[in-house]
Design a protein around this nucleic acid. Structure first.
Length: 488
RNA sequence: GGCCCGUUCGUCUAGCGGUUUAGGACAUCGCCCUCUCAAGGCGGAGAUCACGGGUUCGAAUCCCGUACGGGCUACCA
């Protein structure tokens, strides 16, 4: 029988959720969903200096925004809690006691200065040997116990089994890797103040929570053999590992603020859709079939596999994310898009939820005009502002269009023709298309004049539909006003 | 220094010994559509598969080196 899949995402709340962490979360989550397993969220807040409750809250918010739900963890609880490392001290203590009792952990009394000196000496000699020299491991059990009893400051170290042979890591992404046991040092499990180190706490939690697969960043790959040794010292089964390569900035360097936004929240604020970010991130290191680029969450959950995760690091390409975001915007239903756009319209002071409700059909009619022109939601306000407020005609458009030969003639002819016109985009189009020929001007000249008059800009959503949405009265008034501008 | 990992178009990737004149997507260029901008359609350019040796009838695919990049080597996570 196979053990049930239990995976975890264990962020450290020392900062906000960034895109790299988000991708790790997505892979864990997708893997759990695909295999009918359990996705656990654990907060690794063992660093009291840098961990904050605000960061934790922000991480939860970002995950939720992305559409990632967890089966166990903060807010939802679960049988393996608590889900904050700071609340699991008893577990670490108990595990350490077990290791003391079975001789796989021993106390070390060397001071930090002594160790630093030894490290420095080792570096100088170029012997290639690094790590702790196991001085205190040579102490007799009685001697060590007596010094601990006497209250001498000490840490607890792992007694690496010297006869172990190479530690093999069977990684789901990288394959088999062997680490020589000689390269493993007796690393610190518990600090002088009794708190566990990361490499210890994480193993205890993964063991206690019965984690079946550890899917995490490959900066942990070299720590894996150390952690395996702890699993073994405790007699626990070792989980399957899958190490994900890093996400880099456009210059091939570690992704940082220098490259623009790194936090998930920032993408929300820039008007990106969570489903687009999720899709983009999922494909940054994983592929469905090498052909498909649009992979929505449900497809991801039904098809994700560890085998198709790529080994090489990926560069974050904002251009592709933008394109993907536009693609999701275009594929969205009108009502859905309206609800996503509303916050941006509200923020710009253009419309409220009450407006949308009162003029629902009008907003639905607006959607096809803007959907294929938006790359991010935040672009909506400048695009449709002219429908809500009187536009300012900028100097460039004035010079380029309205002050050009024929503009005045065109506008008065248009105003005249439109008076008797049904106010539908089809009728408006038919009417306006007749104008150029009667006054002997190019269609483009006429239409651009009307566009600038109605929208204040040479670039706008489609003209006839825009006029329809603007309404007869406002359209005619603007054309009239522009006519005066053109002829003065 | 030591131990590990990675290297296919500018970018994300497909490829897991012959079906490959190395496929798709973004970006880019051109054409078409067209009331502007987009979107869309069609097409182009773009990768001697990091390099050098092997193994094999045959290698992007397997092995060994080299180079470059990265990680770990903390009483950080």
């Amino acid at each position: 029988m196979t053990t049930p899949v239990r995976v975890r995402f264990a962020p450290s709340p020392t900062g906000t959720l960034h895109v790299g962490g988000a991708r790790t979360a997505i892979y864990n989550w997708a893997f759990a969903r695909k295999s009918g397993g359990t996705f656990i969220l654990r907060i690794d807040d063992t660093d009291p200096e840098r961990s904050t409750a605000e960061n934790t809250a922000q991480i939860l918010r970002s995950l939720t925004w992305l559409g990632i739900d967890w089966d166990e963890g903060p807010e939802v609880g679960g049988e393996y809690g608590p889900y904050f490392q700071t609340q699991r001290a008893d577990n670490y203590r108990a595990a350490l006691e077990t290791m003391k009792a079975n001789g796989t952990a021993y106390p070390c009394f060397c001071s930090a200065e002594t160790l630093e000196g030894k490290r420095e000496a080792a570096r100088q000699s170029g012997s290639g040997i690094s790590g702790y020299d196991r001085t205190c491991r040579a102490l007799t059990a009685e001697d060590a116990a007596a010094r601990v009893e006497a209250g001498e400051p000490h840490v607890w170290r792992l007694a690496v089994p010297l006869d172990h042979g190479p530690v093999v890591v069977d990684d789901a992404v990288r394959g088999l890797t062997e680490f020589p046991i000689e390269a493993m040092d007796d690393f610190v499990l518990a600090r002088t103040d009794g708190t566990p180190t990361y490499n210890f706490a994480t193993v205890i939690d993964d063991a206690d929570m019965e984690i079946s697969h550890v899917i995490r960043g490959d900066d942990h790959l070299a720590n894996t053999p150390r952690q395996i040794l702890v699993f073994e010292a405790l007699g626990h089964t070792v989980p399957r590992f899958a190490h994900l390569s890093m996400i880099w900035g456009p210059d091939g360097k570690k992704l940082s603020k220098r490259h623009g936004a790194t936090s998930v929240e920032a993408y929300d604020e820039m008007g990106y859709l969570p489903e687009a970010l999720l899709n983009y991130l999922a494909l940054l290191g994983w592929s469905l079939d090498g052909e498909t680029t649009i992979v929505p969450a449900d497809v991801l959950k039904a098809n994700f596999s560890l085998e198709r995760i790529s080994k090489n690091p990926a560069i974050f390409d904002i251009d592709k994310l933008e394109w993907m975001n536009g693609s999701y915007i275009r594929d969205m239903s009108a009502d859905e898009l309206i609800s996503r756009l509303l916050p941006w319209l509200e923020r710009a002071g253009l419309a409220t939820a009450a407006d949308v409700e009162a003029r629902h059909d009008w907003f639905v009619a607006l959607i096809p005009l803007v959907a294929e022109r938006l790359k991010h939601l935040d672009e909506i306000a400048p695009m449709v502002r002219f429908l809500f407020e009187e536009p300012e005609i900028d100097e460039a458009s004035l010079a380029k269009v309205l002050r050009k030969e024929g503009a005045g003639t065109a506008l008065s002819a248009v105003a005249e023709a439109l008076k008797a016109c049904d106010w539908s985009s089809a009728a408006i189009e038919e009417t306006l298309r007749g104008v150029p020929e009667t006054i002997g001007l190019k269609p483009k000249v006429v239409f651009q004049a009307v566009r600038v008059a109605a929208t204040g800009s040479t670039v706008s959503p489609p003209l006839f539909e825009s006029l329809e949405l603007l309404g007869r009265a406002r359209s005619l008034a603007r054309i009239q006003a522009a006519h005066e501008l053109a002829t003065t």
